[in-house]
């Protein structure tokens, strides 16, 4: 949230703090304090006490001097570099971006009990000597099952096998209660 503009009289200590942090250019000063700071600077330069003037002059000299040194440093970005970046990103990875955490959380909530059930059933299957297709097992106990496909990398399978409606899990048959 943007703070409201400060209209109260600013103490000189705050002005020197602003100069020390943001430099001498008002455009870099905090927006909500800019008007008050500029007003105070003008007042001190025009009619401040000798002590105030000396204090402000010192802060301004330091801030302005460092700004001057920094401003001399050019860091132009070559057009060629921008073109290279644009070209390099012309074809982002083929998979779709990951689903939102909102959807993920929904899947998490829907599949979690079933995954636990599947793990229990798998363990029971081993005990009873039954054959369990590994494609239907949640394996590491993760919150969703991953359908193994012959031509997909594990990462692709992870992304592509993430069911939004739980159909994958249900299609596994064995896991459905």
């Amino acid at each position: 949230m943007t703070p409201s503009t400060t209209t109260a009289v600013m103490p000189i200590e705050r002005l020197t703090q602003i100069l020390a942090a943001y430099g001498a250019s008002p455009q870099r000063w905090p927006e909500h304090e800019r008007a008050a700071a500029e007003s105070l600077r003008a007042r001190i330069l025009a009619a401040g006490s000798p002590q105030e003037r000396a204090m402000l002059a010192e802060a301004l000299r330091e801030a302005d001097g460092l700004d001057d040194v920094l401003s001399g440093l050019s860091a132009e970005v070559p057009d060629a570099a921008v073109a290279r970046l644009t070209a390099a990103l012309a074809f982002p990875p083929a998979h779709a971006p990951k689903r939102s955490w909102t959807v993920f959380g929904l899947v998490h909530a829907v599949l979690r009990p079933s995954a636990a059930f599947a793990a229990t059933m798998a363990a029971l299957g081993i005990v009873l000597g039954l054959s369990v297709d590994p494609a239907y097992s949640s394996g590491d106990g993760s919150d969703y099952t991953v359908a193994q496909t012959a031509d997909a990398s594990p990462a692709d399978a992870l992304l592509d096998g993430l069911s939004l409606d739980g159909n994958d899990l249900n299609s596994n048959g064995d896991a459905a209660p």
Binding site: R84, L89, P93, P97, S100
Partner: peptide
């Protein structure tokens, strides 16, 4: 800087939905 910029924008692509 070019490598980092590519990485940053790839993260945008990957994380945009989140």
């Amino acid at each position: 800087a070019e490598d980092i910029s590519q990485d940053a924008f790839l993260r945008v692509w990957q994380k945009a939905a989140e």
